[in-house]
Design a protein around this nucleic acid. Sequence first.
DNA 1: GTAGAGATGTTATAAAATAACATCATGAGC
DNA 2: GCTCATGATGTTATTTTATAACATCTCTAC
Lengths: 165, 165
Amino acid sequence: MSTDHPTPTLHARHDHAHCVADALTRADALCAQRGARLTTLRRRVLELVWSSHRPRGAYAILEDLSQQDGKSTAPLTVYRALEFLVEQGLVHRIESLNAYVGCASPGASHSGQFLVCEGCGDAAEIDDSSIRTAIESAAIARGFRVQRPTVEVRGVCKDCQEKHP
Amino acid sequence: MSTDHPTPTLHARHDHAHCVADALTRADALCAQRGARLTTLRRRVLELVWSSHRPRGAYAILEDLSQQDGKSTAPLTVYRALEFLVEQGLVHRIESLNAYVGCASPGASHSGQFLVCEGCGDAAEIDDSSIRTAIESAAIARGFRVQRPTVEVRGVCKDCQEKHP
DNA sequence: GTAGAGATGTTATAAAATAACATCATGAGC
DNA sequence: GCTCATGATGTTATTTTATAACATCTCTAC
């Protein structure tokens, strides 16, 4: 499932280096505050997840990791790091892509809503309260107790629409 | 990932045989109307998907199929049938489970919203207009064109809550 | 009846995820 | 500082999920 997207556009114009640095700093702070151990490996995996705003597969991250180190790493290593990062709310898993993406606002709510562009592959995290409450209401109406809502909307982002009119 | 759930409860009380027969009849009608070929194989796979209201993995269906026939079937056979059924809107894929479930109202809208119970494993399909419009509005606000919204809500259904208070 | 499209069969392989167990590192308590 | 227990990582093997490439069959339209 190598989804080769042309170029990411959704966030094309921003200072991505800053964006990553920011994410790492917030992760450091959050983990310190919680007494969670953001080890070197986990931090590196987090950085690799953040290397773009496109969800990345575990094996893609694995490759990066292996390449950086020269030696090859086992899948489990990456999966374990990802598991930790997801638990800490630093990374989200995009179910419909079997891939992972950095969380835009760790520490906060976490409804897990994404607009996934078919064009560029970017996944924009949103946190729309009306979606959240609509889901909650629908569930309550059926006596269903919500634990983890997943919203993944496939479509085409603004930039990609402009490119291909 | 063998999610062995105790017993399905969400739809425990209904006449499931009737439920399946109904689904097959509607599928026949829809495909006839569209000129789509609901072959014997595809119909059998549809029936197996409907064997419960729990999403079933492709390989589980494959096993059933092989067992029924004595001879073993190839995965691709099942995947191709499922692909057809999903295209026709007769079956939905639950992304977060890598599994398939019969569509409650084929031919109709198809927003693809599910309440997935962690207890019994049942996936109740809902079609809540306020969820649909909330997603649509959120997308529009960001210039995003929606193609396929996916909503999969993990939680605990009414019956399972009553069982484990 | 025949051609052609679409459906299925067959074999092999890729991609994604986990299991079981060994070893290593870190930090709390002494 | 040392020790031990806990948690993190390494290693090897395997399972689960999904697709590729190509051959053969089977309907349907003509």
